[in-house]
């Protein structure tokens, strides 16, 4: 077993995805196989290898501090499932700010 069901459950919570019990079962089985395959990477000696997070050899990309304008408010809110007086509206937030 390369991944436990509890880990899948925990990770699904981190990703904020609700899984039905049968989904969780199936996904855990599939991820087990996939991670087992991914574990072939453990064979590679990477001790002295630097990670590549950006493939391009470019650096220091910036923009000038000049305003380029904002969207009109209608466009900001056009796709909003719920809105009120120019705000987006969500259920009452009671959780802690992380």
């Amino acid at each position: 077993m390369s991944i436990e069901k509890e880990t899948v459950e925990y990770v699904a919570h981190l990703a904020r995805i609700e899984l039905m019990p049968d989904e969780l079962e199936k996904l855990s089985r599939q991820l087990d196989v996939i991670i087992d395959f991914i574990d072939t990477l453990k064979k590679v000696d990477v001790a002295s290898i630097a990670p590549t997070s950006h493939i391009l050899p470019i650096q220091n990309v910036t923009r000038e501090d000049e305003p380029t304008g904002s969207l009109p408010i209608e466009k900001v809110l056009v796709n909003a499932p719920l809105r009120q007086n120019g705000f987006f509206m969500v259920p009452k937030v009671i959780e802690d700010n992380p």
Binding site: R63, G69, G86
Partner: peptide, 17 residues
């Protein structure tokens, strides 16, 4: 992004994609 940082504007009027 190029949105203004001015304080105290109407909600969501200083936003862009």
């Amino acid at each position: 992004c190029g949105c203004s940082t001015e304080f105290g504007q109407e909600p969501n009027t200083q936003t862009c994609p």
